[in-house]
């Protein structure tokens, strides 16, 4: 079953790196949606069926942490699997995000790291689809 993915990052180059990595990791991707901040991401989530979101933290307008809080508040999308891909180095903040059910990938990442974590999460996402 292919997964619809939302990639949220204010850098277009970073979004394309993440998408390329997902393809290389052999993730069965359906549609790919992109957003450059949290607010755009919520619009995409309202308008489309999305199975997995990869989200940066530091973004203008609405940051990734605010986005995750908002997603968890909305019953229709509260269970969305989320992977945070960020330079964030604060253990305090990383733990806060993990408590909200997000996985964490540290930038700079290697494609292999993203591949492994996405594989784990997409197994869960696939299970949820059944």
């Amino acid at each position: 079953m292919s997964l619809n993915v939302l990639v949220v990052d204010d850098s277009a180059v970073m979004r394309s790196m993440i998408i390329r990595t997902l393809e290389m990791a052999g993730v069965d991707i359906g549609q790919v949606f992109q957003a450059s901040n949290g607010e755009e991401a919520l619009q995409q989530l309202d308008a489309n069926w999305i199975d997995l979101a990869l989200v940066d933290i530091n973004m203008p307008v609405m940051n990734g942490e605010q986005l995750i809080e908002e997603v968890r508040r909305r019953s229709a999308i509260a269970d969305l699997p989320i992977i945070v891909v960020s330079t964030e180095g604060s253990q305090t903040r990383i733990e806060r995000l993990q408590q909200k059910g997000a996985k964490f990938i540290h930038k700079p990442f290697t494609p292999e790291t993203i591949g492994q974590i996405v594989e784990g999460v997409t197994e869960v996402a696939n299970d949820n689809q059944v």
């Binding site: 530091n58 960020s86 964030e88 180095g89 604060s90 253990q91 305090t92 903040r93 930038k107 700079p108």
Partner: peptide
């Protein structure tokens, strides 16, 4: 993002 925790510690939260 990577230099900040190296100078301010892993607990510090930056914007």
């Amino acid at each position: 993002g990577n230099i900040l925790p190296r100078i301010a510690g892993q607990e510090a939260v930056f914007d």
